[in-house]
């Protein structure tokens, strides 16, 4: 089970990086960033899972899954949303100058 999760994490993370390296559309870059973030979240949650474990809501009927990565992931999701919003703000601002979302055409930032 966990091997399957790890394979998904690896593929998803590399797919996100591939998007950032190859795609020229700034929105696609943001999509790649989101995918990389999701991959990291999935890694945490699947690592916290313990077979036959219960959700960390008391009272437990048996052994519980690890609650610590859940708390970390929760904050990571909110912070991820905030920095995606900041990325959109950057795109909108740059778009006001250049009238395009092609990252190769943002020449004004050079040197």
């Amino acid at each position: 089970m966990i091997i399957m999760s790890f394979a998904t994490v690896a593929i998803l993370f590399s797919l996100g990086l591939f998007t950032i390296l190859v795609q020229r559309n700034a929105f696609k870059t943001v999509i790649g960033l989101t995918l990389m973030e999701s991959a990291v979240l999935l890694l945490f949650i699947s690592w916290a899972y313990i077979p036959e474990g219960w959700a960390p809501i008391l009272p437990l009927k048996g052994s519980g899954v690890d609650p610590l990565p859940h708390a970390l992931t929760l904050t990571a999701i909110v912070i991820g949303a905030c920095d995606l919003a900041l990325a959109f703000a950057f795109i909108m601002k740059l778009n006001g100058f250049e009238k395009t979302v092609d990252v190769d055409s943002f020449r004004r930032l050079k040197g």
Partner: peptide, 23 residues
């Protein structure tokens, strides 16, 4: 499914609701 109800709730609200509308 991986027994993380808190995270699932947050992901459903933020990642598929808010981020999509901001996009």
């Amino acid at each position: 499914l991986l027994r993380a109800p808190d995270v699932a709730l947050t992901q459903a609200i933020i990642n598929s609701g808010l981020i999509t509308s901001l996009l």
